[in-house]
Simulated assay, not measured.
Amino acid sequence: MDFDVRPFEAADADWLVSEHATHYAQAEGFDDSFGPLVRRIVDDFLRAHDETCEAGWIAHHKGQRLGSIFCVRKDNTTAKLRLFYVVSEARGTGVAQALIDQCLGFARAAGYGGLTLWTHESHAAAGRIYMRNGLTRTHTKAVHSFGVDLVEETWQIAF
């Protein structure tokens, strides 16, 4: 599939929130508390991100958005990957890897010493991508979130 990756824009916000909320409700049974969490993350980014060390990207093809990823500041030395998502019809096409490459490259160029992310064990395909790119799962915890039983995961990589 032919696609490009461009910077995230405010006009992408509603799509990103809707896509995350709809997908995870259908695929994993998440309740309606997940969409507001994604909205808060997006709104916080739009309101106060530091362009020198934080960015977001959208993969797209012929006007269709295919996925998203963000790199934000966790602390002075660590970046945090957020809102990594690829629409189902673009999975297996290289979109996910292109987004990961964009995020990791930006984090390194911004001077971070490493990157961390939080996800769920049920996102096994994403876990394989993280592992393939040198991240290590460092923590797991059983929780009840978004109306379902989940296993939270923390992944990390040092640069």
Rank of each mutant, 00 (worst) to 15 (best):
K74A: 14
L83G: 14
A79M: 12
A59H: 03
D43W: 10
T140P: 02
D43G: 13
N133K: 03
T22E: 14
F45R: 11
T136V: 03
I129H: 02
H49C: 06
Q97W: 00
G63M: 03
G127P: 00
T22H: 15
R40K: 13
V42H: 07
A109D: 13
L117D: 09
G113Q: 10
S68M: 12
T154E: 11
D12V: 03
I69M: 08
D149V: 02
K74C: 12
V5T: 06
R39N: 11
F45E: 07
R91V: 07
V148W: 09
E153R: 05
R128H: 15
D50P: 09
N76V: 04
A13W: 08
K62H: 14
Y130S: 06
G134V: 02
G92H: 01
D12H: 00
A27W: 02
L150F: 09
G67D: 15
G63T: 04
L99E: 00
F3R: 15
R91S: 11
A98E: 01
T138C: 04
D44C: 10
Q102F: 06
G113N: 15
F34E: 07
L115P: 11
R40H: 10
M131G: 06
I129Q: 07
P7C: 10
Q26E: 13
W118A: 13
F30I: 01
A11T: 11
L46R: 03
S88G: 08
R108E: 12
G35R: 09
R47F: 11
A98W: 05
V148D: 00
E9Y: 10
G29R: 00
V87R: 09
I69Y: 13
H23A: 15
C53K: 03
H123P: 05
G105K: 07
V151M: 03
V148Y: 08
S18P: 10
R65A: 12
T140E: 02
L16S: 01
S68N: 14
A125E: 11
V42R: 07
V95A: 08
P36G: 05
A98N: 04
C71W: 06
A10R: 15
G105L: 03
L104R: 11
E54Q: 04
D75W: 10
F146H: 04
L83Q: 15
A27P: 05
Q156I: 00
W57K: 04
A124N: 05
Q64A: 11
G134A: 02
T22L: 01
D31L: 04
G29I: 07
A126M: 10
T78C: 13
R128A: 10
A125V: 06
A21D: 09
R128K: 13
A107P: 05
G63S: 12
W57T: 09
Q64G: 10
H20E: 04
A13K: 04
E152R: 02
L99Y: 03
F159D: 05
C53N: 09
I100M: 07
L81F: 01
F45Y: 13
I41H: 13
A109C: 07
W57G: 07
Y112C: 14
Q156L: 08
D2S: 10
R137N: 04
T22K: 09
Y24P: 01
A142D: 05
G134K: 03
L46K: 08
T77H: 11
F8D: 09
D101I: 03
R82V: 11
E54H: 01
T138A: 04
Y24S: 06
R40I: 08
D44E: 13
V38F: 11
L37H: 08
K80S: 07
L115T: 07
A110G: 03
D149N: 13
T77P: 14
G114K: 07
S145Q: 11
